[in-house]
Design a protein around this nucleic acid. Structure first.
Lengths: 338, 338
DNA sequence: TTGTATGCGTTATCAT
DNA sequence: ATGATAACGCATACAA
């Protein structure tokens, strides 16, 4: 039975407490105020269930404590984990997250940037694909896995090194004929360096090397055909495969099983990302693990740090290798297929 | 080289266009305005790269076009998919999503509700666990999978029927001795009805029935012990298992494999949820599928509909059964383990 | 049809 | 130390 149907405001609190508006504001912001006043204001606040209006605050301060996060989607475990970790980091710092799922659509990406700006976010963290993404220079933007433009920091892992590690690992494990399998965009994002690194490693270790790259839109089944072509007299041409992501590795392993090629006995498979499914217990396969915690934390730190000048252009975190059953060695971790 | 360091406002646009403030507002909101004026205003807008300030709008209109979504986390594929679908539905209606990951922590849940209110969201969609969650009655709240309180709609699937279907399916497939495996909270949320439905189905079809319920905090490995206890002379006591979620089913199947119990030859397994991993291609196991699209759409629809009075208390969507390799029948869909 | 003035809830700058 | 008042950017009722 309150007198106003809408939420109580500072004015209501001031009236209830019998003090001036400014005094209420001070109490709320922890500024010095006479003890007796403070008590009366606090009583009024809890009586009316008063809550500050972030919109009014934001309007006044032009600081909203909100950050937009652009992700293709959140069903993909890699993006999901990244989102989760960024959210945790933001929450820790009392920031709120506006999640924008772009479906990897360049138009959506651009549109969400507009929306984010209209919402006066304090910054944007984005994993985007639009090669012509226009980012207003006076909004702080942190990019993940892709160099977006001058002055915009990009946070990623050491993709090149990861590729190289995969090649070296396969060599160490006795492989002689290996292949790199990749899906995805033709554009130049950081994960493209996985291929170069792998190639480099193959050259260094004298491995026979081939690669199969699916264009955007091509179905994953094309890999099945590729694998079949490399089956001769019941023998498989390759003894080692490096897949650009764990997700690709998953599908490849499925195809191989159907072809009665054994993993890891006949062919060893290494993925990339270090996805852990089902409550972080199981890796998909032996893989190059990205330190997503570090990446997420760095994104948030860069975004919220004050000295806007000193933003490094590209930050690569080191990756690690973990065996999880799809390579011929003692698995360090349980895998999906073991 | 613009004269103000901060973003341009309507006032700047009005000045640039040589018209009054109100006119600019009208142009932006699509209200009738003289053609020549409109053109001048539009020119000024694009020249200054003007963008409306949602915070000022929201303050004025006390309508923010934003919705808070409370989810335990987004790494779990079930929650992730739900989040994704809700986001899609919100975006379609020009609403923005404030994602709040609660980690299933009752205190976080409560806290996020406060934050959401301070952010003047137009409503909250929440999958929560706090049995004493306090929700201000004059904020629209839609609950998923749990009845939160009087006047708060709950959207879920027909969990009871799903349990019953699982029992009947196992019976149809020749099972005689079955078990129900569940993890999780002791509290009374909707998914608890899966057990009752299953039990009911078992009674109707004369199945020997047992159940193992893990309390919160107990490690999943306890199931392993349970399964081992039911191994006698190399024979497994059960020929059918119903798991409360696909995630539990995943772990169970792993344990069974390690025990050399074959799925589905020795024991058939049915899960719940209908998770599809890796680009929606593969189910985890034979399972009871929730229509998550419908659930997400209904949540958003209920949240945004005007007539606040007519909100139904509990909405259950029908579930379907799909076979995916962990039951003895022709799989309709590929599964993780096939 | 266009312009002006007021208020949304908060904060900050003043006098008091 | 406290109380009044202006300003943030926008929408709208009202006056011109």
């Amino acid at each position: 039975m309150r007198k106003k149907s809408s939420a109580p405001t500072m004015k209501d609190v001031a009236l209830e407490a019998g003090v001036a508006l400014g005094t209420v504001s001070k109490v709320i912001n922890g500024l010095p105020v006479g003890e007796s006043y403070r008590l009366r204001v606090e009583a009024a606040i809890s009586k009316l269930h008063y809550q500050v209006n972030s919109y009014a605050q934001g309007l006044k301060a032009s600081r909203t404590y909100s950050v937009a996060v652009l992700m293709p989607n959140v069903s993909n475990p890699y993006f999901a984990r990244l989102t989760q970790l960024i959210n945790r980091e933001l929450t820790r710092r009392k920031y709120r997250m506006l999640l924008c799922c772009t479906e990897s659509d360049p138009a959506f990406e651009q549109e969400y940037i507009t929306i984010a700006q209209q919402n006066k976010v304090d910054g944007i963290i984005g994993l985007t694909y639009n090669p012509n993404l226009e980012v207003n220079p006076d909004i702080t933007f942190i990019s993940i896995d892709r160099t977006v433009g001058a002055g915009i920091p990009c946070v990623t892992c050491d993709n090149f090194m990861g590729g190289q590690m995969a090649a070296e690992k396969l060599a160490d494990l006795g492989c002689r004929n290996v292949a790199f399998l990749r899906v995805g965009s033709s554009l130049t994002n950081e994960p493209n360096k996985r291929r170069s690194g792998f190639e480099n490693g193959c050259l260094a270790r004298n491995l026979n090397y081939e690669s199969k790259i699916l264009q955007d839109g091509e179905p994953i089944e094309k890999f099945d055909a590729f694998l079949q072509e490399h089956m001769h007299d019941g023998r498989f041409d390759f003894d080692g495969l490096f897949c650009v992501t764990d997700m690709v590795a998953y599908h490849i392993i499925k195809f191989l099983k159907r072809m009665n090629v054994r993993v890891p006995e006949d062919v060893q498979v290494i993925g990339f990302d270090g996805l852990q499914l089902f409550e972080d217990l199981h890796y998909v396969c032996s893989t190059i693990v990205q330190p997503l915690e570090d990446i997420a934390a760095m994104c948030v730190q860069l975004l919220l740090q004050d000295n806007l000048g000193a933003k490094p252009p590209l930050i690569c975190f080191p990756v690690t290798y973990v065996s999880a059953g799809t390579t011929r060695e003692e698995p360090e971790k349980p895998g999906l297929f073991t």
